[in-house]
Structures are given as C-alpha cells and as structure tokens.
Simulated assay, not measured.
Amino acid sequence: MLSFQNLTLGYDRHPAVHHLSATIETGDFVALVGPNGAGKSTLMKAILGHIEPMEGRIELGDLNRDDIAYLPQASRVDRSFPLTVFQFAASGLWQTRGLIQRVNRADRQRVTDALSRVGLHGFEHRTLDALSGGQFQRLLFARKLVQNGRLLLLDEPFSGVDEQTTEDLMAVLQAQHRQGATIVAVIHNINLVRRYFPTSLLLSRELIAFGKTDEVLTTHHLNRASTIGFGDHVHADICQVSES
C-alpha cells in the first residue's frame, strides 16, 4: 500500500529524514516510533503530499489522496471556530461530498454512529470549546471514522489524554483495523506500542529498525535511536521509556 524508496525529506535543504526505504503492506498496523525531532511528523506530511521529497520517492500503490484519513495532533486544531460537535464530525464527509453538498439522512446516521462509537453520544450540540482535552480527542477520532479512509495516519493520537480515553480509542482503532484499514500512528508511549501494535518502524532521522514490534523495540535499537543525530542529551529519556 505504501512504499518509501530511498526517501530523503527536509526543509530549506536541511534533511530531516535520510534515505528511508520501507514498505507498509495493506492491513498493517504500524507504530511510528522515535525521539523528538526524529522526522516522524515530517514523514506524515510527505505521505499526505504536503512536502516534496528532496530525494527518492513515496509510492501509494492503488491509493489516492481521498483514501487517506489524517488525524493531526490535537494542539494544531483551532477549537475557537464556532462549530458544534456534530458539525465538526460531519466535516469528515467533505473529502468525498464537497463543501456545499447537503448532508442526507444516511450521512447524518453515519455521523451519529461515529460519535456513539467514541463515547460522545449526547454531545452533538456542544461547541468545540466546551469539550475537555479527552473529549476533543474522541471527536477527532469520530471525524476519521466518518471519513472512513483505507489508510489512517495518526500523529500522536493519545498525547495529553487519560488512560481510559486511550484504552477506549485504541479499541476504536482495533475495530477499524479488523474492518480492513491500514493504520500508521506516531506513538511516544513505548509500553502502549508493545501492548497493541504488532509492527513498529523506529526512526531517528534514518531507519533504525522496521518489523515485528518485539524485534524492533530492543534496548540496542532504542539506544541507537537515541544517539544518532541527536547526541547524548536524549539518551537517558528514551532508555528510561524503553525500560519502564
């Protein structure tokens, strides 16, 4: 479904990801792991077509951009815009319906079902600024369910939310995976990756390891990821996470 061929990405001629080659197959459930500044969000942007490769290429197989559902970091979404929970979730239809086409009865049911699945039934008329951080993260997931993409890209989907919200939303992701979605998620919680993600891609500006999670998230690989291109100042942090 998704292939990186000798891919180098960066900004203003300064590479952030170097010579990445890897293939994500249809139906994979992948955690994208690495230190801060490792190039994970940059890779997401490149898959979405927001930045062009400096070298190499990204191949999407039989996908087009409308097949990709992207969940950004919650902190990057403007919650001051005057939308209700229902309207925001329904914006997941825009990619296939356009901005001016009216929402029909089937669409409304689709949105209602998505809100119920993430635990927001009864919140339809609340505004975005009335939601807690965890509730807003659930809403972001609901919008992705409405969009129903074949490839789900999630950038730190559990950042700043409590354990119960994380568990609930992981169940939503697992259900999407069982229904055939391919999922790639930037995850910082190594223990969460080990519990739920069968496949991991460990990135530290270059590919450290890619494959079965228990073979990728070894102490050796995590130690290497913490020092390549960053120096010893991040070494203690990632090692502490890896051993916790």
Rank of each mutant, 00 (worst) to 15 (best):
G149M: 04
R138D: 07
R195H: 07
A175C: 13
A236C: 07
Q240D: 11
G231W: 08
P35R: 02
H188M: 04
R117N: 05
L99N: 06
L203Q: 01
T218K: 05
V193I: 09
A236Y: 08
R117A: 15
S200H: 01
R138L: 10
A209I: 14
L32C: 09
H121F: 04
R13M: 15
R194N: 07
G27H: 08
I68F: 01
R143Y: 08
F123D: 05
V118H: 02
T127C: 13
R205T: 12
K144R: 14
V241S: 15
R108I: 09
D12G: 14
L43I: 12
G149Y: 03
R126A: 14
F81K: 04
V184Y: 00
L48K: 07
V33Y: 03
V111F: 04
I100R: 08
L99V: 10
I47W: 01
P35G: 08
S132P: 01
D232H: 15
V17M: 15
A69M: 11
A175S: 15
I238H: 05
Q176E: 14
S3D: 04
N64M: 07
A142F: 11
Y70L: 12
T165Y: 10
V193H: 00
L131I: 01
E206T: 09
N104L: 04
R102N: 11
D78T: 12
E163N: 06
T165K: 07
W94D: 12
T96E: 15
T96N: 11
A225N: 02
V111D: 02
M54Q: 15
G27T: 05
I208L: 06
T199D: 06
C239H: 13
I100Q: 07
M44R: 03
D237Y: 14
L20N: 13
A74P: 00
Q179I: 10
F29E: 04
V234L: 14
F88P: 01
G27C: 07
E163C: 06
V241R: 13
R110G: 07
M1A: 01
K212R: 09
P157E: 02
R126V: 06
R108Q: 09
A74Y: 00
G49F: 03
H125D: 14
A185E: 09
A89G: 11
F197T: 00
L63E: 00
Q87M: 11
A181Q: 11
S244C: 12
V17Q: 13
A90V: 00
P53Q: 05
I183P: 01
L71N: 02
V234C: 12
L71S: 09
T182F: 01
S116M: 09
I190C: 09
G61W: 00
T112L: 15
L202R: 13
L32H: 01
S242G: 10
N104R: 06
V184F: 00
S244T: 10
V241Q: 13
A69T: 09
L192A: 04
G27K: 12
S116Q: 03
A90S: 04
